[in-house]
Write a protein that binds this DNA or RNA. Structure first.
Length: 125
DNA sequence: CGAGTTTGACCTGCGC
DNA sequence: GCGCAGGTCAAACTCG
């Protein structure tokens, strides 16, 4: 049963408001929502960081967290209409164990497009 | 040439 | 109020 939820849920999501000084043209100072999308945490034991779930992910950041001795990777769905994000963290105790946290829901079919694989059996938050 | 990856800088929230 | 930790973006670089 690798469905245990790590203490990641304690973290809150915040969006950076484009309040770049000097860029008065921005105007979009309104916060991008506190992000109320569901989250799906998965703990998988794999040698690879990214699991090919059928979607295309683009890495947009990497940070080292104190909780883990390994850096955490941040991925984003390449689809323009899909703002789903994925967080991949490696356990310090088990470098073979990776925690994949999905944020949001895909509003499109996987890149394969072979069939609408409704593998959304994720525990709806 | 384009998409994707990498790395650093910057910002925000929370704890002390 | 300040410092720390975590998260995101943007510019530059690389590979296909």
């Amino acid at each position: 049963m690798h469905c245990r939820l790590p203490p990641l849920e304690l973290q809150q999501f915040r969006w950076r408001n484009s309040s770049s000084s000097g860029c008065g043209e921005k105007g979009k100072v309104k916060v991008r929502r506190k992000l109320r999308e569901p989250r799906f945490c998965f703990q998988t034991r794999s040698e690879v960081d990214v699991l090919d779930d059928g979607y295309k992910w683009r890495k947009y950041g990497q940070k080292v967290v104190k909780n883990s001795l390994h850096p955490r990777s941040y991925y984003r769905c390449t689809h323009s209409n899909c703002r789903v994000k994925k967080r991949v963290e490696r356990l310090s105790e088990d470098c073979r164990m990776v925690i994949t946290t999905y944020e949001g829901r895909h509003n499109h079919t996987p890149s394969e497009d072979s069939n609408s694989s409704e593998h959304e059996c994720f525990s709806s938050f």
